[in-house]
Design a protein around this nucleic acid. Structure first.
Length: 303
DNA sequence: AAGGTGTGCAACCGCGCATTC
DNA sequence: AGAATGCGCGGTTGCACACCT
């Protein structure tokens, strides 16, 4: 049995919306809210599909939508997030206040994508394109240095998946994505080789744990302070030490933001982190989370 | 001036997921 | 449990306009 159509399409208008239609939809939603979109057209006196009404509202009529040219900062954010998440336009849009996924997608396809190609970068992988073959140049095992790079690319992919999951969580959550945006905005578009010592990595990983906890909007999800390794504070990077109190504060107050003092502390810490620090931290976070999952899995199978 | 081509973007379509019954 | 339903997402289409020949 096939899927039922979203609405009775016979006699319904398609194509560009007229100012009159916009007014009808706007007036109706302002007065009654959209409710079930399927029923909106009849109630608002529109000969449109409910889906079409929803799209029109989300992309154009919603009062808090910013239209017009993208700023350099917005463009930079889009490129960074696309490198991390791929074509997850809705998640990217969640990090750009007042911009819609459709608008970002269009801007990417008509503008940024072409510019990346002109610059010799693959718009999908964000890697350089081989001049003669147009193949991406990420696999070359002859040189040990290249092997390290390949390994780093794989780590980057893992980190990207982690970010994607986090992005979904942010989207599913009900609150602000401010801190997540702050972290994501610090993650470079390309993996880079790091010369950090293990001690620095440990410390930065700890910071990342704290930041992830601080940005985790739903503490029922499997990220807990118990999974934070005990690590020595041996870095010039300041360490967030009051994660527990931060978490309890947020839970107790059922609030998306921590105390203003904690906010300042986190924001300052994130701002001070360098790209290499973030890379190392994301990888350390991924590795330890993976180990935690293995432990959990072993526990559950041995029961 | 007219036809062809390229570009930007609003809107549509189909699918997957979540929820409801 | 599974069918029906609604919503949201990403890919694609098609139109209007600008630019080129």
């Amino acid at each position: 049995m096939g899927r039922m159509p979203c609405c009775e399409k016979v006699g319904l208008k398609k194509g560009p919306w007229t100012p009159d239609e916009d007014k009808k939809l706007l007036d109706y939603v302002r007065k009654h809210g959209h409710g079930i979109w399927r029923s909106v057209p009849a109630k608002a006196g529109l000969e449109r599909c409910g889906k079409s009404c929803r799209l029109r509202w989300i992309n154009y009529l919603k009062p808090d939508i910013k239209r017009g040219n993208f700023s350099a900062e917005e463009e930079h954010t889009i490129i960074q997030l696309h490198a991390l998440l791929g074509n997850k336009w809705s998640i990217i849009a969640a990090h750009l206040p007042q911009r819609t996924d459709n608008e970002i997608k269009n801007y990417w396809n008509s503008n940024i994508k072409k510019r990346l190609i002109r610059m010799g970068l693959d718009p999908i992988t964000h890697k350089t394109i081989k001049k003669n073959t147009f193949e991406t140049s990420d696999v070359c095992y002859d040189n040990p240095k290249d092997t390290i790079n390949v390994c780093h690319v794989a780590q980057w992919e893992s980190a990207r998946h982690e970010a994607e999951v986090r992005g979904s969580m942010v989207q599913a959550g009900s609150g602000s994505s401010y801190f997540s945006g702050l972290i994501l905005s610090k993650i470079p578009t390309q993996p880079c080789l790091s010369s950090h010592s293990l001690s620095t990595e440990n410390s930065t990983a700890y910071n990342m744990y704290a930041l992830v906890l601080a940005t985790n909007h739903d503490f029922r999800l499997p990220v807990s302070t118990s999974s934070i390794p005990t690590l020595p504070a041996v870095s010039n990077i300041p360490q967030i030490t009051n994660t527990e109190s931060l978490v309890s504060y947020k839970v107790d107050n059922n609030d998306m933001g921590a105390s203003s003092q904690s906010e300042t502390e986190i924001e300052g810490c994130v701002s001070n982190l360098q790209d290499d620090d973030i890379m190392v931290a994301v990888e350390a976070f991924r590795r330890t989370r993976s180990e935690s999952m293995k432990e959990l899995f072993n526990e559950s199978t041995s029961m």
